[in-house]
Design a protein around this nucleic acid. Structure first.
Length: 547
RNA sequence: GGCGGAGUAGCUCAGUGGUAGAGCAGGGGACUCAUAAGCCCUUGGUCGGUGGUUCAAAUCCGCCCUCCGCUACCA
């Protein structure tokens, strides 16, 4: 394990206040594909996702439902893990900010910032909803009675001042700007990087990292006097307050690598190779987070990838409250696990917002999975079995005589490049160009005509038939394997129909290095039997529920 | 207001000086191995508007219109 390259990637952790929507899980599906790709490459891969469970808001919601905060989040977390399982998402750890090691981790980070002189007690001022706590100005609702909390429009807001700890982000302005300039790949795509750079250049203000009134949170480990807030019996002084969101939620990334309990693991996996996040939290991940890490003597992540959103057909952001929400469980029921993964990642560009609709997903599924790829495998397996018997035909050598072998070289290079660049939708487009080439190859060679000639005793036709079908079987093997990170449930079925073994585990671990397997003819010497053809992606004829 | 991006076929988009492209959707055709799928052909656009530079502009420059992102403490 130690000699393998490691790859540590994370998603943002989801706020556990509701059931998950497809637009939330979209990011996790994409990250799961990247994780599987690295596992299949043979990298020592660690994929972290999870839930963010603290906050005044969650405590309030729990109280409204007559639940303890813990029971409330336990229920929500169950919905997330079930939906992720349905989508074939296989994290190496599902982290919860209520996990004990995460609590230790967040507190240690606060202590380090304090030891480094980066936090101080200041006054936090803001609009305060008596039912919910401090509210950002951008989050308020204008009513006849003035500005109000959107969740409690009948309650008058108060302008409150509270003593809180602040992090000296202002001290890191120059270093952050230099980091952006020296590491142009660290924040991507470029236009997001430019936005963040512009934000830094406007001047950075300190931000508060504690809340005095909140109780559902990680105890702030330091008292106002600068001494530990832990009492002799091990409990925490409530007067010290709790850690506010950023020193809680963001910390999950290092907890997941082993901080602070497992230094060996942490040394191996940190800094993270990739944080996949949504555009709404770009600032916190590309500006707050590196500064917090530096303050603790740790390295910034190597790359933060900022993806866009699924938009409803009217261009509106999907959300439960807007009612244009796709339920992942319904979605998987309609499209299947792999179908759901494929259509979201193919239809939505991974670097920008995209309008989607149920119809667009159905069209994409039928065109790409049922008609093009599924049918290619089906007709290939069917013809190989019917014309040649069970014995699987071998591909022609990659010496230039087989057109598909020549085309595959370019396809593979492009595919790998796109997937490594997080251009997941482009990666699939490249692969499906090859699907088209294989389908055209069938029609240009007309194996059924060759089979008739062979049956009539034409030996040259029979030899050519064997070559053509051997090439097609190989094309299907390569496609099934290459697409496995996107279609993890279907890939073993593809290979099985072709009479090939599938050596990877259910999370993509444990098999041979995929780049070796993706060479044309890599398994040409192995013998096998094609199985009975079985449709992989049944066509969808009806439009089920509307989004 | 400031900074940045975008407006190209019904839909999603590619195309940064040289006679308008792809996929899907629509129409037609030949075949038949296949999930009535695949393959071939095809309808369709004054490339947001306007003025300019140039032998030549979707592509460069000016102005205008429309839309979008960022412009600090939401989890």
């Amino acid at each position: 394990m130690a000699d393998r390259p490691r790859f540590y990637l994370t998603t943002a952790i989801a706020y556990a206040n509701n059931k998950p929507g497809l637009h939330t899980l979209y990011e996790v599906i994409g990250a799961d594909v990247i994780a599987r790709w690295h596992r299949m490459k043979g990298d020592d891969t660690r994929f972290l996702t999870g839930t963010d469970e603290h906050s005044v808001n969650i405590a309030q919601r729990a109280a409204e439902e007559g639940l303890s905060p813990r029971a409330f989040v336990d229920e929500k977390v169950g919905l997330f893990t079930a939906a992720e399982a349905a989508l074939g998402i296989a994290p190496d750890r599902f982290i919860r900010t209520t996990d004990p090691d995460h609590v230790r981790s967040a507190q240690e980070m606060v202590r380090r910032a304090h030891a480094n002189g980066d936090i101080y007690v200041g006054a936090y001022e803001g609009w305060y909803c008596p039912n919910e706590g401090f509210k950002a100005a951008s989050d308020l609702l204008e009513t006849a009675g003035g500005w109000r909390c959107p969740n409690h429009p009948d309650v008058e807001l108060q302008w409150l001042t509270e003593k809180n700890w602040f992090f000296r982000l202002s001290a890191y302005q120059e270093r952050l700007e230099r980091w952006f300039l020296d590491n142009p790949g660290a924040v991507q795509p470029d236009y997001r990087r430019n936005e963040m750079l512009g934000f830094i250049r406007q001047g950075l203000e300190d931000f508060s990292i504690s809340r005095a009134g909140a109780t559902w949170g990680i105890p702030f480990p330091i008292g106002e006097d600068g001494q530990t807030a832990q009492r002799e019996d091990g409990s925490w002084d409530p007067e010290a307050g709790t850690i506010y969101v950023w020193y809680d939620a963001l910390i999950n990334y290092i907890t997941g690598a082993g901080f602070p309990d497992d230094p060996a693991s942490f040394a191996r996996y940190w800094p993270a190779d990739l944080h996949v996040i949504g555009k709404d939290i770009a600032r916190f991940h590309t500006i707050y987070w590196p500064a917090m890490l530096w303050s603790a003597g740790l390295e910034a992540p190597r790359k933060v990838w900022i993806h866009g959103w699924l938009l409803a057909a009217d261009g509106e952001r999907m959300s439960k409250s807007r009612g244009n929400f796709l339920d992942p469980v319904d979605f998987v029921a309609a499209f299947g696990s792999d179908g759901a993964r494929y259509v979201t990642l193919r239809e939505v560009a991974f670097d920008r917002d995209t309008e989607v609709s149920w119809d667009s997903f159905v069209r994409r599924y039928n065109a790409d999975l049922a008609n093009d790829f599924g049918n290619l495998v089906n007709r290939t397996v069917s013809m190989a079995g019917r014309y040649l018997g069970d014995d699987r035909p071998a591909p022609r050598p990659a010496d230039g005589s087989a057109p598909l072998a020549v085309a595959w070289d370019r396809t593979l290079a492009d595919y790998v490049g796109r997937i490594e660049a997080c251009a997941l939708h482009d990666a699939l487009a490249v692969l499906w160009e090859f699907v088209g080439a294989a389908n055209r190859f069938v029609d240009s060679e007309q194996p059924w005509t060759l089979a008739k000639a062979a049956k009539a005793g034409d030996e040259a036709a029979e030899a050519h038939l064997r070559d053509v079908l051997g090439d097609l079987v190989e094309a299907c093997r390569l496609l099934g394997l290459a697409a496995a990170p996107f279609l993890p449930a279907s890939a073993p079925r593809v290979l099985a129909q072709l009479g090939h073994t599938y050596a990877y585990g259910s999370d993509g671990n444990g098999g041979p290095a995929i780049l070796d397997e993706l060479v044309w003819g890599a398994q040409a010497a192995d013998r096998g039997s094609v199985a009975a053809p079985e449709p992989l992606f049944p066509r969808l004829d009806v439009e089920p529920t509307v989004a």
